[in-house]
């Protein structure tokens, strides 16, 4: 939907890059081999998943969505994020289609389900929304953390 997320700006090759990204997108669709859980480029919202030492961090890119409009659930190692974003209203008035010059931003309801790594503690979840990025931190269970074993002299 929003192929533009992956487009980068280059003052010299701006048009060339646009063409290249369009081609990439085309090949992405036609690619015979892809991960069974991968989503098409430009899926809203984009998600980053970081597997750290003490915690798993999930970043969800939801610009324009306020914290109270997001629903988060964790069950059986899957995290589900859903919500709604209406970009077709401005100052509580609907923007009629004929007034648009460009319409590139996602509008509508969304749901994403992510499978989490093993060994997370479902009771220790913290979610913070800042500048359009929702950061979910899930602690790892104690037994999953690396442990130092003292070696005794025999």
């Amino acid at each position: 939907m929003i192929a533009r997320w992956y487009e980068t700006f280059d003052p010299l090759f701006e048009d060339f890059n646009r063409l290249r990204s369009e081609l990439d997108r085309l090949f992405d669709i036609a690619l015979p081999l892809s991960n069974i859980r991968s989503v098409p480029r430009g899926t809203f919202p984009a998600v980053n998943l970081h597997d750290g030492k003490d915690a798993v961090t999930v970043q969800v890119y939801i610009p324009g969505v306020s914290a109270d409009k997001v629903e988060l659930t964790v069950q059986n190692n899957t995290l589900s994020i859903s919500g709604e974003r209406d970009t077709q209203r401005c100052d509580d008035k609907e923007i009629t289609p004929e007034r648009y010059h460009r319409r590139e931003r996602f509008s509508g309801s969304f749901t994403r389900v992510i499978s989490l790594p093993e060994g997370i503690d479902q009771d220790k979840i913290n979610a913070v929304c800042k500048d359009g990025i929702l950061t979910i931190t899930i602690a790892k269970r104690e037994e999953q953390k690396p442990k130092q074993i003292a070696v005794k002299a025999a």
Partner: peptide, 21 residues
């Protein structure tokens, strides 16, 4: 990155929205 934008216009002004997470 090139952010996606919405641009629309009425009699008074042009309004631009850009996603900058």
């Amino acid at each position: 990155l090139v952010p996606p934008v919405d641009i629309f216009e009425d009699d008074e002004q042009v309004i631009l929205f850009a996603d900058l997470p």
